[in-house]
Structure formats: C-alpha cells, structure tokens
Simulated assay, not measured.
Amino acid sequence: MKNHWSEYWSQGYITSFGEAFKMNYQGEIKFLWQGFSRTLDKHSKVLDVGTGNGAVIELIQAVSEHECVGIDLAKINNEVTKQINGHFISHVSAEKMPFKNEEFDAVISQFALEYSDVDLSLSETHRILKPEGKLHLVCHHKSSIIVKPNRQILEAGYAVKEHVLADLKGLVNVLMNNEPTSLYIEKIEKFISSFQSLEKVSLEATNFPAFYRFIIKNKNIDFDEAYKLFESELELLLLRLNELKKAAENTEKLLQKIRITQLFSEIAFKEIRDESNNLIAVVISAEK
C-alpha cells in the first residue's frame, strides 16, 4: 500500500478523496473531529495514525492548541503539512510505532487503522495511550456511499482485465501496423454494450471506454506506450479498490477486537450519515 499512497500524497491532496475535496473535509466529518477535539484537555498530546497529508490534524487544530503528531506508512508531503500545526513522520506503521509507553492523551485515525493488522495496531495503540486515554476512529463500512460504488468499480475493472484487455491489446497491435480493426472493435463494443445503465457508470470509472475511444480517434500517438500506461493505471485501480474493500470488511473485526480484548472500556459505535441519510462511515470510540 505504501508506494501508491506516497505517489498520491505527493500530488498535494489534503484528503484521500482527491479532487472531490480540494480544501479539506466538510460537513459531518469536520464537525465530528472538531467536536472530539473540544472534549480533550487543552494542550493534549494527540497521535493521528494514517495521517496522510494531515487533514484531520488541520481540522482539529482549527479549534484547539493540542500537541499533534501525525504518522503514515507512506511518504508525507512536507510542502502540504508545513502549513499545519503538527509534527509529521513518514514511513511509520501502525503495527510498530516509535513512541514511549503511555505517551499520548488520544489516538485518532480516519480511514486508516482498518487497513492495518488490527491485532498488532490495537496492541500498540493501547501501549502508547495514557491511562484513560481516548481512542477515536472513523472507519470505512462495507455499506457506505464510499465503499459500495467502489466495489462495483472493482468488479467492472476485473471484468475488463479478464474479458477484454487482450482484445484491447490486439486492437493496439493492428492500429500500430495499419491493419483491419473490425474484429477487435466488434468484440470491444459487444463487451461495453453488455453493461446495463447503472453498471456503465462503474465501467466508465475504470477509464476503459474513454481509453478505447481515445485510441480509435487518435492516429498519431504511440499506441504501445498509451496501452502500457492504461494497463498500469488499471492495475493500480484494482490494487487501491481491493485495499478499500478489505479495509471496510476489516472494520467489523476491528470493533470486535476492541470489545473482546479487554484493553479498552467505554466502547461506543455510531454511524456518520449525510443530510440525505446516506451512510458515510462509522465511528468507534473507547478509553484505555
């Protein structure tokens, strides 16, 4: 996971949703973190696990003066985080954190801890929390409006890879050699038309139809190089969405571990929903 997230954060995004949130999280997520920040004592020491480029710390510090530390397995973009009141450390895993026992008043995480080995990361979290320290997590859920459409895109991506990628490569080869294209075009068009209206949205999100239209309309390009770029981007998409799917499934395991390990008390679970009552994520909170 580390390498492709390093590339992502290097592009300067503040959140994990790219162009969808050009500034920072708004709405329910913003209110949740700023509300949690106000429950902490002034100048509390807070660790953000899987901080990315520091979005959650930025939200918290807008209403507080805590001592915030952000860690991430990926490389953090210092050009972004230097504008945020916090200390940021790259290439640190949730399973093995370089901090003293009972160092933090709170450990927080958004869309991150569920990607880890939860047995190890929960043990580490417990170790570095002070007595009565707070654990506050925002996690993906398999039924959320974030995960459900991405699962459908993942299925469409696998369909492309398994059923039509070879035909796309064949089309590229005949285009390079100025040979007839009708056989491959017929196969690809049949594949695209097999998707129903809702499925077509997921297929478009793989960029396969757009790439197919691009190479048909543009004759003066390096077809082989263009195909290699599309193929690598498809593999990256499948990797990222597979991680998301597994993380969402891991959230239930994470909650169960918190409940049965007896490391934490005051355990609470709630849903975050938007104004249309769509499930965005779930919140897990506890105390040491």
Rank of each mutant, 00 (worst) to 15 (best):
Leu244Lys: 01
Trp9Gly: 07
Ile29Cys: 05
Asn150Ile: 06
Ile280Met: 14
Glu233Phe: 02
Ala286Pro: 06
Lys245Asp: 15
Phe104Ala: 01
Val174Ala: 02
Tyr212Ala: 07
Ile185Glu: 15
Ser143Leu: 14
Leu113Met: 15
Gln61Arg: 06
Val107Glu: 00
Asn277Lys: 13
Asn218Ala: 11
Glu189Leu: 13
Val69Asn: 03
Asn53Tyr: 06
Ser37Tyr: 04
Val164Thr: 11
Asn150Leu: 12
Thr206His: 06
Val164Ala: 05
Phe104Pro: 01
Phe230Ala: 04
Asn277Tyr: 12
Asp274Lys: 07
Lys187Val: 02
Val164Asn: 02
Val283Asp: 01
Gln256Glu: 14
Leu183Gly: 00
Gly86Arg: 02
His126Phe: 11
Leu237Trp: 08
Cys139Ala: 10
Leu237Ala: 09
Ala20Asp: 10
Met23Ser: 14
Pro209Cys: 12
Leu229Asp: 09
Leu198Trp: 07
Asp167Glu: 13
Ile84Arg: 03
Tyr8Trp: 10
Phe208Cys: 10
Gly12Val: 07
Ala106Phe: 04
Glu58Gly: 08
Glu287Trp: 00
Thr125Gln: 04
Ile57Pro: 05
Gln26Arg: 12
Leu175Val: 01
Ile153Lys: 12
Arg213Met: 05
Gly170Tyr: 04
Lys161Ile: 01
Tyr212Ser: 04
Val147Pro: 06
Gln110Gly: 11
Ile60Val: 12
Glu252Asp: 15
Glu28Trp: 03
Glu28Val: 14
Lys42Ser: 15
Glu103Lys: 06
Leu40Gln: 09
Tyr13Phe: 15
Met23Gly: 00
Leu73Ile: 14
Tyr158Thr: 02
Thr125Tyr: 03
Glu132Arg: 13
Ser182Gln: 13
Ala205Lys: 14
Thr15Phe: 03
Lys161Ser: 15
Val283Phe: 02
Lys190Ser: 14
Asp222Glu: 14
Gln110Trp: 00
Lys190His: 09
Thr125Trp: 04
Phe223Arg: 09
Ile153Asn: 02
Phe31Glu: 14
Ile284Lys: 03
Gly170Lys: 01
Asp72Gly: 04
Ile76Val: 11
Lys200Trp: 00
Phe21Thr: 03
Ala94Glu: 03
Ile29Tyr: 03
Gln34Lys: 09
